[in-house]
Computed example of a mutant assay.
Amino acid sequence: MSTAAPALAVVHTAVFAAVPAQVGSARAWAVTTSGLPDDAAADLALITSELATNACRHSCSARPGGAYTLTLTRHEDRVRITVTDAGPRAVGAGRRPQPATGAEESGRGLALVAAFAHAWGVDNDTGGTRVWAEVRTAPDAGA
């Protein structure tokens, strides 16, 4: 009977200004830090772009001087990217976020995250919002 302990996760953290011009830097940091192979790195890049953009557009982090934190956790079989921001901005009275229609150019970010991530979720129990997504370290891992 094997009693080997599971491998410990490796965690990296970086903080980025919540401005659109920093999304590319966040994406590059995640891909470089992850050490993922090309296909998985491309998925991580897309996911990081979407989550970072959402922090810049839809959170209180988008206020002047605001920031969000990226946390990359490398497990043996997957990489988890987490974006932590200052929480949602208030939606105007009587307005609710609506799903994108076919003609709109934005509004599909979380649908893309869901399509490219192995798993993803949202936690709002921190006074802010944490959105995370996982990418497998190998295409056949867990299949």
Rank of each mutant, 00 (worst) to 15 (best):
50 E>N: 14
98 Q>W: 06
51 L>S: 04
101 T>Y: 05
77 D>I: 01
127 G>K: 07
42 A>W: 01
72 L>S: 12
136 R>F: 01
134 E>D: 15
48 T>F: 05
82 T>P: 01
131 V>F: 07
8 L>W: 00
86 A>I: 04
68 Y>V: 04
72 L>M: 08
73 T>D: 15
11 V>S: 12
128 G>I: 10
13 T>M: 09
126 T>C: 09
75 H>N: 08
93 A>S: 09
123 D>Y: 00
20 P>S: 02
40 A>D: 15
13 T>A: 13
84 T>P: 01
7 A>Q: 13
81 I>H: 04
35 G>C: 08
62 A>E: 05
69 T>F: 01
120 W>D: 05
25 S>P: 00
126 T>W: 03
134 E>C: 12
103 A>H: 06
31 V>R: 12
22 Q>M: 06
106 S>Q: 08
4 A>C: 09
135 V>S: 08
24 G>F: 05
115 A>T: 13
7 A>V: 15
139 P>F: 00
26 A>M: 03
16 F>W: 01
7 A>G: 07
75 H>E: 10
21 A>V: 12
125 D>T: 14
116 F>V: 07
47 I>P: 08
130 R>C: 14
96 R>G: 04
54 N>V: 05
94 G>L: 13
5 A>L: 11
134 E>I: 07
97 P>D: 13
41 A>M: 04
82 T>E: 13
44 L>C: 03
118 H>I: 03
31 V>P: 08
63 R>K: 13
140 D>I: 00
95 R>L: 14
69 T>R: 15
55 A>H: 08
95 R>K: 10
108 R>V: 14
70 L>N: 06
129 T>R: 15
112 L>K: 08
135 V>F: 04
65 G>H: 14
1 M>N: 03
78 R>K: 12
36 L>N: 05
78 R>N: 08
17 A>G: 05
39 D>C: 06
97 P>H: 10
